Computed example of a mutant assay.
Amino acid sequence: MEELSIGEVARRTGVPASALRYYEDAGLLPAPRRVSGRRRYDAEVLRRVQVLRCAQQAGFTLAEIRTLFHGFGAQTPLGERWRSLANAKLRELDALIARAGQMKQAILAGMECGCVRMEDCILVPPE
């Protein structure tokens, strides 16, 4: 089986070696074998890093990615794991999109404000 140095994993994945060490410390990557004190990764780590990066791009937190990797039974297929987490993430995104829409409306309303004094502004109802 092919073994890769941390530099080779970094080069092939585009992920800095420092990030790979961080992911290892965070439990997202398996601890590699050590040869003369140097990390030697199995080639399968390349795929795991790709899944990790895809999950990050989808907005999953490191804690959620840890759940994706370790929070299910060993027999649970990756797709089922992903769907389980994705449903919660989609609800979170829908709420974020709604909030962003409200923010946009408030900004647009404020841009239309022609008030001279704060006391006269119709954007802020009187107490």
Rank of each mutant, 00 (worst) to 15 (best):
Phe60Val: 14
Gly27Gln: 04
Arg34Cys: 05
Gly114Trp: 02
Gly27Trp: 06
Gly101Asn: 08
Glu24Arg: 01
Ile97Asn: 09
Ala58Asp: 03
Ala106Ser: 07
Gly37Pro: 05
Glu92Tyr: 10
Val35Pro: 07
Leu90Thr: 07
Leu46Arg: 02
Ala55Glu: 11
Cys115Phe: 04
Gly59Glu: 03
Leu85Glu: 03
Cys121Gln: 13
Ala26Gly: 03
Val9Phe: 05
Glu112Gln: 09
Met103His: 07
Asp120Cys: 15
Arg33Asn: 06
Asp25His: 08
Glu119Lys: 09
Ala43Lys: 06
Pro125Gln: 12
Asp42Trp: 01
Gly71Glu: 05
Ala63Ser: 15
Glu24Ser: 00
Pro126His: 11
Gln102Leu: 14
Leu4Ile: 02
Ile97Tyr: 08
Ala109Cys: 02
Tyr23Lys: 00
Leu4Met: 11
Leu4His: 08
Glu2Ser: 09
Leu62His: 01
Pro77Val: 09
Cys115Asp: 09
Leu20Phe: 11
Tyr41Gly: 03
Ser84Glu: 01
Tyr22Ser: 04
Gly110Phe: 05
Gln105Pro: 00
Gln102Asn: 10
Ala88Tyr: 03
Leu96Gln: 11
Met111Thr: 08
Ala74Ile: 04
Gln75Ile: 00
Glu112Ala: 10
Ala31Ile: 14
Glu119Met: 06
Asn87Asp: 11
Ala10Glu: 08
Ala17Cys: 12
Ala55Thr: 11
Leu52Asp: 03
Tyr22Pro: 03
Cys115Pro: 05
Glu127Val: 12
Glu127Asp: 10
Gly14Thr: 07
Ala109Glu: 12
Gln50Leu: 13
Gly79Val: 03
Thr61Tyr: 12
Glu92Ile: 01
Ala86His: 04
Ala19Cys: 00
Met118Ala: 04
Gly79Gln: 12
Leu90Ala: 02
Arg21Gly: 04
Cys113Ser: 06
Gly7His: 09
Gly27Thr: 09
Arg66Trp: 11
Ala100Met: 06
Tyr23Phe: 13
Gly110Cys: 15
Gln75Met: 07
Leu123Cys: 10
Ile122Met: 14
Arg47Gly: 15
Gly79His: 06
Ala88Leu: 13
Pro30Ala: 12
Leu62Cys: 04
Ala98Lys: 12
Ala63Asn: 14
Pro77Arg: 10
Cys115Gln: 09
Glu2His: 13
Leu62Thr: 01
Cys54Gly: 13
Pro16Tyr: 03
Leu68Asn: 01
Arg21Ser: 06
Ala31Thr: 15
Tyr22His: 13
Ala58Ile: 11
Val51Ile: 13
Arg38Cys: 08
Ala58Asn: 09
Pro126Cys: 14
Gly27Leu: 07
Glu44Val: 00
Asp120Leu: 14
Cys54Arg: 13
Leu108His: 03
